[in-house]
């Protein structure tokens, strides 16, 4: 008898609970466009935030809701994913060239002497709000890996030998998380060439040439030789710092050979054969640093 009662009560309780759950579920049901689920499935599901939304669901929401989706782009999935989603939704796919994160610092340990030892929390944002860093360069990579923490794809690592963050271009999805994480604003999303070819200025120092030279042998001193040699008008010099516009650059590599400090980095291809004027190079490097220093001084006095 007891057993029977027990079974009965428990069954009744179970049914009652099920009923309540059903009613509640019906009452609070949220009507959602089923396409959102579908679009979310088509997205990579990394939830990295590279699109500007909190996660893939957010982007899916926006993709379904908006008529014009040209401003939305999933950097991880890239053009093919966006094409697929656009076709599914019957909208025009946004177009974006593939890019890759690039760390604009070449101040490896051997080129950039340490002037002190940092003993605080190993975090770039904490160290940089406190002081200049372990070298005399106030612009270079600190190497405590805030970008590594931010990367959801294991694509950026601090090389223990150089003390500088390096991007694995194969894994990088250009989500931009590291760009936001870097307190020194060193990381830039640059055009991605096939075979990971790249030419860029691996320096962000806005110091005067002489100051930069003292802090780091691999720094850009703003001599302007690269800009002169560039046939595509891709190089600009501002605040004593050369910048190569990756949209204009055609990877001709002329600037690489011109740079007296080696601040222009070439990746994925062989350098141009050196021309016989190598002998003249060191002589040219020195006077080239001068004009920049003067320009700065004038502006400071004003």
């Amino acid at each position: 008898m007891t057993v029977l009662f027990t079974i009965l009560t428990l069954s009744l309780l179970g049914i009652l609970a099920a009923l309540i759950l059903y009613v509640v579920a019906q009452k609070f049901k949220v009507e959602e466009d089923p396409r959102i689920d579908q679009v979310e499935k088509m997205l990579p599901g990394a939830n990295c935030g590279g699109c500007g939304f909190a996660g893939c669901r957010g982007l899916a929401d926006a993709l379904v809701a908006r008529d014009d989706i040209s401003a939305l782009f999933c950097p991880v999935g890239g053009a093919s994913t966006m094409e697929g989603i656009a076709t599914y939704l019957g909208k025009v796919a946004p177009k974006k060239e593939p890019t890759v994160a690039t760390v604009r610092c070449g101040g490896v340990c051997s080129k950039r002497p340490k002037t002190n030892e940092y003993n605080g929390t190993k975090s770039c944002v904490i160290a940089s709000s406190f002081y200049v860093g372990e070298s005399a360069c106030a612009f270079g990579c600190l190497g405590y890996g805030d970008c590594v923490e931010a990367c959801a794809f294991d694509a950026i690592h601090v090389n223990p030998e150089t003390g500088i963050a390096e991007v694995d271009a194969e894994k990088c999805t250009a989500c931009g998380a590291c760009v936001k994480a870097c307190p020194k604003n060193l990381i830039e999303l640059r055009k991605k060439w096939p075979k990971n070819r790249a030419v860029y200025v691996a320096c962000a120092s806005k110091d005067k040439g002489a100051v930069t030279m003292k802090a780091c042998k691999a720094g850009c001193i703003g001599c302007g030789k690269c800009a002169k040699v560039c046939a595509f008008d891709a190089i600009t010099i501002e605040n004593g710092l050369a910048y190569i516009d990756s949209q204009k650059c055609k990877l001709c590599r002329k600037c690489v050979n011109e740079c007296p400090t080696g601040a222009i980095v070439l990746k994925g291809m062989d350098p141009l054969p050196k021309e016989p004027k190598v002998v003249a190079k060191p002589a040219e490097a020195k006077p080239a640093a001068e004009p920049k220093a003067e320009v700065k001084k004038e502006s400071a006095n004003e």
Binding site: Y131, G133, A136, D207, K297, A300
Partner: peptide, 14 residues
Amino acid sequence: AVDMVPNGQGIRQM
């Protein structure tokens, strides 16, 4: 001179 000089934390200041 009236110029940028590093302060105690190595940061350049006027």
